[in-house]
Design a protein around this nucleic acid. Structure first.
Lengths: 273, 273
DNA sequence: TATAAAGGTGAATCCGCAC
DNA sequence: AGTGCGGATTCACCTTTAT
């Protein structure tokens, strides 16, 4: 068993390759997985290597190879996550078009049942500078259940009657939560300890966790990055296990976790819903 | 060569299996393809057969078989569409989570380059009756180019400076068109000649056609249904070829096309942008 | 002290130009 | 013909200044 890189109360971090760490975790163990997998080789011509972005543009043959290799990778980690999920457990996957189609198709092939796809709309997205495309201003989240049969957690009333509409122009008060959410990308205040390229806003993870888990549940993030998932889990009295291959990001996670005590003094960030 | 089921001016319909009709069309011929492919066997437990929906629920083995068969089908029609597209041509694919991940991944494997994914948000979507999921209120559209190299058409200024904001709460006037569009589902007036299960609003197709084609361009819809694509193409002086395997839907298409003359008297439907 | 206006900064991609 | 650099593009944020 891998030794934890950091453990405090209900917040645990493992340093290492996600497939290797996952193999050592017990099966039927987690209530929910949130995963923001890396893009790898395909499409963008970049891969994440030792914390730096390295060009791997080797022409069309390699690009198509990259797509297939990405897909194999997604199949592998999705299978491992399925093993460690409880039968009634669910998984969230986030991504842009570079990765989400391979992920979503792999998810279906591995046997998960998709429950919803959710669109995170970013009202404050950056403009498109090339002026030859639409301005990318959303990410896709897929929510799926391990087993086609089991009964998943969905906190319908909290989603419906919470005060989400105060920050989300698309949520109508007292109406059902829909599949498109308007949430700003993180502002400077949320990034004060350092930057992670795909850092999610805490408001997004809070909504996900409140919707699909209960107090005391155990949540896993196999590509934890700066651990926004872990912070939201901790705030709502869930337990958390995060994995990342980059020590740099785990150190950033720890700084953010230790700062939660400061956040506690700001009631707005801890508003229940 | 298949004989056209209907042809008038720039509006042509073929009756038959889309793969067979596509095989008879010349290569490097079309400027744009819009496709709303069927779900087939997987996931929903339904298949479209002779105009009726037939249950094909045969348990898990068949479900997984269905996913793979769907994928093979998507690979086939996407390859055929690639052949008939001009090098600088683009393709739009629409779908919900049941089909869009298989389609998107097949698209990438076949060698298209994804340009954007667009979210069609439906402000007037139906509520979720089970109360165990988020309310599905969007569809996904993928926009991709045949060749990774060639230069595609994108009418940036029309998208940016058009009056879209009059009907779309997410479009800011004078700002770039973004990847999430708020457009209502078709009202009764748009369905007066009959119903098609996945009929799209004319406003959606008008935006797509104005964004990604020029006057006189040739547009193909291999699963044309009630031919909303064809109507929008005709209104904007593009040429159109539609294919469907259901005679019933082609007859509906013809009724709608012949009614365009009436629409012409209603300036609102013909507003340029 | 709060609100409003004004100016500088940064992000990603493509183009043309020089070599 | 490939490489590599600089410029252009847009819009939300952040900071500074003004009311």
């Amino acid at each position: 068993m891998n030794r934890a890189y950091y453990k405090k109360e209900r917040f645990t971090l493992y340093l290492g390759d996600c497939l290797e760490v996952l193999r050592d975790l017990p099966e039927n163990h987690f209530d929910m997985v949130f995963a923001d997998p890396p893009y790898h080789l395909s499409n963008g011509g970049f891969t994440c290597h030792a914390g730096r972005r390295v060009s791997v543009n080797k022409g069309k043959w390699d690009e198509s190879r990259g797509i297939e290799e990405d897909f194999e990778f997604h199949m592998r980690w999705l299978k491992e996550c399925k093993r460690v999920l409880k039968p009634e457990g669910t998984i969230w996957i986030s991504g842009t078009y570079h990765s989400i189609y391979a992920c979503g198709f792999a998810l279906q092939l591995v046997g998960y049942k998709i429950l919803n796809d959710i669109i995170w709309y970013k009202p404050n997205a950056s403009p498109n500078l090339s002026c030859r495309y639409f301005t990318a201003s959303h990410e896709t989240l897929i929510w799926a259940r391990k087993s086609p049969k089991a009964k998943h957690t969905f906190n319908y009333e909290i989603m419906k009657h919470g005060t989400w509409h105060r920050d989300d122009i698309l949520k109508k008060p007292g109406r059902q939560m829909r599949s498109v959410w308007a949430i700003d990308t993180p502002k400077a205040a949320e990034k004060k300890f350092g930057k992670h390229p795909t850092q999610k806003p805490i408001a997004l993870l809070k909504r996900i966790i409140l919707a699909s888990t209960n107090e005391g549940d155990l949540i896993l993030d196999p590509f934890t990055g700066s651990s926004t998932t872990g912070l939201a889990a901790y705030m709502y009295s869930r337990s958390f296990v995060g994995i990342d291959i980059e020590k740099e990001y785990l150190d950033l996670s720890i700084k953010r976790f230790q700062d939660i005590k400061n956040l506690e003094r700001k009631p707005k960030l801890f508003a229940r819903y």
